[in-house]
Design a protein around this nucleic acid. Structure first.
Length: 445
RNA sequence: GUGGUUGUAGCUCAGUUGGUUAGAGCACCGGUUUGUGGUACCGGGGGUCGGGGGUUCAAGUCCCCUCAAUCACCCCA
């Protein structure tokens, strides 16, 4: 064994693991296609500026970046949204709206690896661009839910908590918080559940420096607002604020759409979700497991200003991302990972080298006809070969011994019920096609 | 980035107060059992005990450093 190991936070996928990844991506793709989304892809390696432009220089420490041989500053992609914005931006003027796109790519982040958080991970991204109304947000949230339900999870297994940065900004404005400081206040809100009262007050004081707003009162009001869990409560809180009332009309449309589509059980209003990302502009949401560990499964929201910021047209957008790592942990816990039969259709048992030319001719024809076929590369005896067929996971064994070849037949044997039948070699492909379709009775008298 | 725990064969683990050439089960490869299902029996490969340094006559075992995994923070596009 080589002592050169794979890099920390990077996974090797043995066939059993790769099959699981294939299942995850298959479910994602199926859900997205049902919503009319089309798949896209972008380069894994991008100019460093593509990412610093969106997120600032601070993120460089979390990037796999380097200088290439041409002196270009480059980075493995930590996410796909900037690439999406660039690609859409380049052709948006000629594209029918709304644009429904999804991608499933491996992303790379230079972080300390932990459970559920690696340095390389696959992520589904689904984005809907060119539509600013809440119907688009509802469509994305519904897709996010269906991307989980597609695995066999029920609406009781997860919760999509929906919040709204627009509403937060309007509420903070009504408290007298200047627009410039609202983002800083929101980052304090983000810590409400975890921080100690003392730390929170300190952070709030810093966030409100230079304003006339009292930090401890602001903290109290923010906590009350964050704990709001129903539209009715929100309406009473915004009774005399026209801007907030207008926004609540959009909330009603969002929730009514999701209710009509049957997602009532898995969605919840939760204004404690503000998401750290500065670029979110409206509704934001996160999907959590409802069980013990409350893993975060997906997150997303509206980012109306980002495409323009990255040099594209002024295009409203909403989207979400869902990673494969925590999802896989959850599916394993819930025993929702199917065991795929990965064996060949036929295992050809060649008994004696005299039989080999006939067997090779036939098995090559079977492969050309689309069947999965394995056979013994070395001569072997019957017990070994039937075991090899079993271990390979074959559905049927095809036996080529001296007596079969002399009679011009092959013997097909079901690996499940052990029944056998002889099939003339001249009729082999159609007969075995019937066996795969109908079982052994297709060739038994 | 900070702190805790863990590290012996592909896997699960033994390994005594430090004491010969580090073991078992499973798995893998081969042989035997006259062409009918993982059996049985026999045999084999595989470890610089995560890596490096130190203490000692002697280290898988004790000490230090380091790497990795994992947990709690930080962060989380």
């Amino acid at each position: 064994m080589s002592d050169i190991r794979s890099l920390p936070g990077f996974r090797e996928f043995y066939p059993e693991d790769r099959a699981v990844l294939g299942h995850v991506m298959g479910v994602w793709r199926q859900a997205c296609r049902r919503y009319g989304f089309r798949e896209w892809e972008s380069p894994v390696l991008e100019p460093l500026e593509l990412f610093t432009e969106k997120s600032g220089e601070e993120i460089v420490r979390q990037l796999f970046n380097f200088e290439d041989k041409g002196g270009r500053k480059v980075s493995l992609r930590p996410e796909m949204t900037p690439s999406l914005a660039r690609m859409v931006g380049a052709k948006a003027n000629g594209m029918p709206k709304p644009i429904r796109w999804f991608a499933m790519g491996e992303n790379y982040r230079y972080e300390k690896p932990q459970k559920g958080r690696l340095r390389a991970f696959y992520q589904l991204n689904a984005d809907l661009l060119g539509e600013a109304g809440p119907a688009a947000d509802a469509e994305i949230i519904a897709l996010c839910a269906d991307c989980l339900i597609g695995f066999g999870l029920t609406q009781a297994d997860f919760r999509i908590r929906i919040s709204d940065r627009t509403l937060w900004f309007r509420y903070l404005a009504s408290l007298g918080v200047p627009e410039l400081q609202a983002a800083a206040v929101l980052s304090v809100v983000d810590k409400l559940e975890r921080g100690s009262p003392k730390d929170l007050l300190e952070a709030m004081t810093v966030a409100l420096a230079g304003t006339s707003v009292d930090p401890s009162r602001a903290l109290e009001l923010c906590r009350a607002f964050a704990n709001t869990r129903s539209l009715a409560e929100l309406e009473s809180l915004s009774a005399n604020d026209e801007a907030m009332k207008a926004r609540l009309a959009e909330w009603k449309q969002l929730l009514a759409t999701l209710h009509s589509m049957g997602f009532s059980e898995c969605i919840a209003i939760d204004l404690t979700i503000v998401r750290g990302l500065a670029y979110y502009t409206g509704f934001v949401f996160e999907a959590f497991e409802t069980g013990g560990e409350a893993r975060a499964l997906a997150g997303g929201g509206r980012y109306d200003a980002l495409v323009k910021k990255l040099g594209g047209p002024d295009l409203p957008a909403v989207g979400f991302g869902m990673g494969d790592v925590t999802l896989r942990d959850l599916l394993e816990l819930k025993k929702l990972i199917p065991v795929y039969a990965d064996g060949p259709d036929f295992y050809v048992m060649i008994l004696g080298e005299d039989a080999r030319p006939s067997a090779l001719e036939d098995l090559a024809n079977l492969r050309r006809s689309g069947f999965r076929v394995e056979y013994n590369l070395k001569d072997g005896k019957f017990p070994k070969l039937i075991q090899a067929a079993e271990v390979a996971g074959a559905k049927y064994a095809l036996i080529y011994g001296g007596s079969e070849v002399a009679k011009g037949v092959a013997k097909v044997r079901s690996m499940t019920d052990r029944s056998e039948a002889e099939v003339p070699r001249t009729d082999l492909v159609p007969a075995l096609r019937a066996v795969i379709a109908e079982g052994m009775r297709a060739v038994q008298p």
